[in-house]
């Protein structure tokens, strides 16, 4: 469902993503790990069609985001890293706006909005202005936006960032549940989430894949059963580079 082929992004002299190739099939949840600045968000922005790649291609459901961006975008739900929202709107107003842009109308629109509010536990704040929401609720509102049109592909950039432990648990369960019928790519810095909700994980470092496998395979590769150790061994630390 998501096919990334030799995707590269160059920012000036800096290569943020370096010939990245991977696929995510239907029913798969791919965890995207890597240190800060590894190029995770940049990769996601290219797959969602926000940033044009320097070279390479990404396809969702077989549709190239470069050749046919408009159609590819209808297949994807995307939660950006900063969970941006229009602060002058209410939660329900914002979700209705997003649903309209996605081409939903009338009762289909209302149903979709209702379903998203329920899935993301936003019922208590539905009529509240986004301005006055706490950070976790904002994050969940943006997540709800990604689920509105029941997309075949979900791309979530740090979906559990800023959530309380209860909500973290709920979102992990949600990802796991949705992953059965969709293709999901999500990034995270919390390694336990890999075991909790991923069927596969890749670790990227400086724009390149350094490890790829099921959680069990990665644990085996680490030798001592600790993902953290594997992560620390495979990725460059800023502290080392500075030394």
């Amino acid at each position: 469902m998501i096919e990334v082929e030799s995707l590269t992004k160059q920012f000036g002299s800096k290569r943020a993503v370096d010939h990245l190739t991977f696929t995510v099939k239907k029913g798969e949840v791919l965890g995207f790990l890597g240190p800060n600045g590894a190029g995770k968000s940049t990769t996601m922005r290219m797959i969602t069609g926000f940033l044009p790649p320097t070279s390479g291609d990404a396809r969702v459901c077989g549709i190239s985001v470069i050749d046919n961006p408009k159609e590819a975008k209808t297949k994807v739900g995307y939660l950006p890293e900063s969970a941006p929202l229009y602060h002058d709107m209410t939660v329900i107003g914002f979700l209705k706006f997003c649903a309209s842009i996605r081409g939903l109308k009338g009762s289909a629109k209302n149903d979709a909005v209702e379903r998203a509010i329920e899935t993301c536990f936003l019922g208590s704040v539905a009529r509240q202005s986004i301005d006055t929401l706490s950070k976790g609720y904002r994050h969940r509102t943006c997540l709800a936006q990604a689920l509105l049109h029941d997309p075949e592909v979900l791309i979530l950039d740090e979906p559990t960032d800023g959530l309380d432990p209860n909500q973290k648990h709920e979102v992990r369960q949600l990802i796991k549940r949705l992953g059965e019928s969709k293709a999901i790519l999500f990034s995270t810095h919390i390694l336990e989430e890999v075991e909790a909700s991923c069927t596969r994980a890749v670790i990227v470092d400086r724009g390149k894949i350094v490890a790829d496998g099921t959680p069990a395979q990665l644990l085996e590769q680490s030798g001592n059963g600790s993902l953290t150790d594997l992560f620390r061994r495979l990725t460059t630390r800023d502290t080392e580079e500075a030394a």
Binding site: Y78, P84, L85, C98, I101
Partner: peptide
């Protein structure tokens, strides 16, 4: 400034 351009840029609209 608020980053909502990233939402607009990934919605299916020109």
């Amino acid at each position: 400034r608020t980053g909502t351009i990233e939402l607009l840029g990934t919605f299916p609209l020109s």
